[in-house]
Measured scan of single mutants.
Amino acid sequence: KVLVLALYDYQEKSPREVTMKKGDILTLLNSTNKDWWKVEVNGRQGFVPAAYVKVL
């Protein structure tokens, strides 16, 4: 399983997205889209901007 680090806070803007806080460790589920990556955080799955996270 691939983990990513949240570099910035992100507030979800649609039901398909998830909120994350800077420093959160998320599970990367899909990174085929260069702009939006699907992650799991706190038991929820959704998209975050790829530029806001870094693969650990």
Results as ranks from 00 to 15, higher is better:
27 T>H: 09
34 K>P: 11
41 V>L: 13
2 V>K: 10
37 W>F: 08
44 R>V: 13
47 F>Y: 13
39 V>K: 00
40 E>C: 10
39 V>T: 01
27 T>D: 06
22 K>D: 03
54 K>W: 12
33 N>I: 07
11 Q>K: 12
25 I>H: 06
45 Q>E: 14
54 K>Q: 14
23 G>R: 02
12 E>V: 06
39 V>L: 04
13 K>I: 11
45 Q>D: 09
27 T>E: 14
46 G>Q: 02
3 L>W: 12
7 L>N: 03
52 Y>Q: 06
56 L>T: 06
19 T>G: 11
16 R>L: 14
13 K>D: 07
7 L>A: 04
36 W>V: 03
30 N>S: 14
52 Y>I: 08
13 K>C: 13
32 T>Y: 13
42 N>C: 08
49 P>L: 03
35 D>C: 10
17 E>K: 04
26 L>W: 02
55 V>L: 11
14 S>N: 13
40 E>N: 06
45 Q>G: 08
17 E>F: 07
37 W>H: 03
2 V>H: 14
46 G>C: 03
45 Q>A: 13
32 T>M: 11
19 T>I: 03
5 L>P: 00
20 M>A: 02
52 Y>W: 08
42 N>Y: 09
15 P>Q: 11
30 N>G: 08
2 V>D: 10
49 P>W: 03
12 E>C: 09
27 T>Q: 14
26 L>K: 00
30 N>V: 11
36 W>G: 01
20 M>W: 01
46 G>R: 02
49 P>N: 02
31 S>C: 13
12 E>M: 11
38 K>C: 11
38 K>N: 08
36 W>F: 09
33 N>F: 09
46 G>S: 02
1 K>P: 15
4 V>C: 10
13 K>E: 13
31 S>T: 12
49 P>K: 04
43 G>M: 08
28 L>N: 01
31 S>F: 11
49 P>S: 02
47 F>W: 14
21 K>P: 01
38 K>F: 15
25 I>V: 14
52 Y>K: 08
52 Y>D: 05
11 Q>T: 15
1 K>C: 07
14 S>M: 08
10 Y>V: 01
45 Q>L: 10
19 T>W: 04
35 D>P: 03
30 N>Y: 08
48 V>Y: 01
41 V>M: 15
12 E>W: 05
21 K>S: 12
16 R>Q: 14
11 Q>F: 13
26 L>S: 03
23 G>E: 03
5 L>M: 15
28 L>W: 02
51 A>Y: 08
25 I>P: 02
47 F>D: 05
35 D>K: 11
36 W>P: 00
31 S>V: 09
3 L>C: 08
23 G>H: 06
27 T>V: 15
5 L>W: 05
33 N>V: 06
38 K>P: 02
35 D>L: 10
46 G>W: 03
44 R>I: 10
41 V>D: 05
26 L>T: 01
54 K>L: 14
16 R>N: 15
42 N>K: 12
4 V>Q: 01
43 G>L: 07
46 G>L: 04
37 W>E: 01
34 K>A: 14
41 V>Q: 11
46 G>F: 07
35 D>E: 12
18 V>L: 14
16 R>A: 14
15 P>F: 09
12 E>G: 13
31 S>P: 12
5 L>N: 03
44 R>M: 09
29 L>E: 04
39 V>Y: 00
49 P>C: 02
56 L>F: 07
24 D>A: 08
12 E>A: 14
45 Q>T: 14
33 N>C: 08
39 V>W: 00
54 K>Y: 12
34 K>F: 07
29 L>T: 06
53 V>K: 00
21 K>I: 09
44 R>P: 01
24 D>V: 04
39 V>I: 08
6 A>G: 04
27 T>G: 07
13 K>S: 13
9 D>T: 06
27 T>W: 09
18 V>P: 01
44 R>D: 05
29 L>H: 06
44 R>S: 08
50 A>H: 04
39 V>A: 02
7 L>C: 06
43 G>P: 02
15 P>W: 11
22 K>I: 07
25 I>L: 08
36 W>K: 03
29 L>W: 06
19 T>A: 07
20 M>G: 00
16 R>T: 15
23 G>A: 03
6 A>P: 01
3 L>G: 03
9 D>M: 03
56 L>K: 04
5 L>I: 14
18 V>M: 12
28 L>K: 02
30 N>Q: 13
41 V>P: 00
34 K>Q: 09
5 L>Q: 14
3 L>R: 09
38 K>E: 15
4 V>S: 04
5 L>Y: 13
36 W>S: 03
46 G>V: 04
53 V>F: 05
44 R>E: 07
30 N>R: 06
42 N>I: 06
38 K>V: 14
19 T>K: 04
28 L>C: 05
30 N>A: 12
56 L>N: 04
26 L>N: 02
24 D>H: 04
52 Y>S: 10
55 V>P: 10
2 V>C: 11
22 K>L: 06
35 D>G: 08
3 L>V: 13
8 Y>M: 13
13 K>W: 04
1 K>R: 09
20 M>E: 00
14 S>Q: 08
20 M>N: 00
31 S>I: 09
53 V>L: 12
1 K>Q: 15
21 K>L: 10
36 W>R: 03
8 Y>W: 15
42 N>Q: 09
49 P>D: 02
52 Y>E: 02
41 V>H: 09
32 T>I: 12
52 Y>F: 12
14 S>E: 07
4 V>M: 07
41 V>W: 08
35 D>H: 15
32 T>N: 15
50 A>F: 02
56 L>W: 08
22 K>T: 09
6 A>D: 00
39 V>D: 00
2 V>R: 10
50 A>M: 05
18 V>D: 00
21 K>E: 06
38 K>A: 08
38 K>I: 14
36 W>H: 04
35 D>M: 12
2 V>I: 14
2 V>L: 14
20 M>S: 01
29 L>M: 10
31 S>N: 15
18 V>N: 05
42 N>F: 10
52 Y>A: 09
25 I>K: 06
25 I>G: 02
56 L>I: 13
17 E>T: 09
34 K>W: 07
16 R>F: 15
56 L>Y: 11
29 L>C: 06
21 K>H: 12
29 L>V: 15
34 K>D: 12
47 F>L: 10
43 G>T: 08
14 S>P: 04
19 T>E: 04
4 V>I: 11
10 Y>T: 01
1 K>V: 15
34 K>N: 13
18 V>Y: 04
40 E>A: 09
15 P>M: 10
27 T>N: 08
43 G>A: 08
9 D>I: 02
43 G>C: 11
38 K>H: 14
9 D>K: 03
8 Y>E: 12
25 I>T: 07
32 T>D: 15
44 R>Y: 07
28 L>F: 03
4 V>Y: 08
22 K>S: 10
50 A>V: 07
38 K>T: 07
11 Q>V: 14
14 S>V: 05
24 D>G: 03
49 P>H: 02
50 A>P: 08
15 P>T: 10
55 V>I: 14
28 L>S: 02
18 V>K: 02
13 K>H: 14
12 E>L: 07
42 N>A: 15
19 T>Y: 04
55 V>H: 08
47 F>K: 03
33 N>M: 09
55 V>F: 13
16 R>S: 15
23 G>T: 02
20 M>C: 06
2 V>Y: 11
23 G>Q: 02
49 P>F: 03
1 K>F: 13
11 Q>N: 13
18 V>R: 02
11 Q>W: 15
28 L>P: 01
26 L>C: 07
40 E>P: 00
48 V>N: 00
14 S>L: 08
22 K>Q: 15
34 K>I: 11
15 P>N: 12
6 A>E: 00
18 V>I: 13
51 A>M: 14
3 L>E: 09
44 R>T: 08
34 K>E: 09
39 V>C: 06
47 F>T: 03
1 K>H: 15
19 T>F: 05
48 V>K: 00
55 V>Q: 08
35 D>V: 10
43 G>V: 04
1 K>I: 13
51 A>Q: 13
52 Y>C: 07
47 F>H: 06
25 I>S: 03
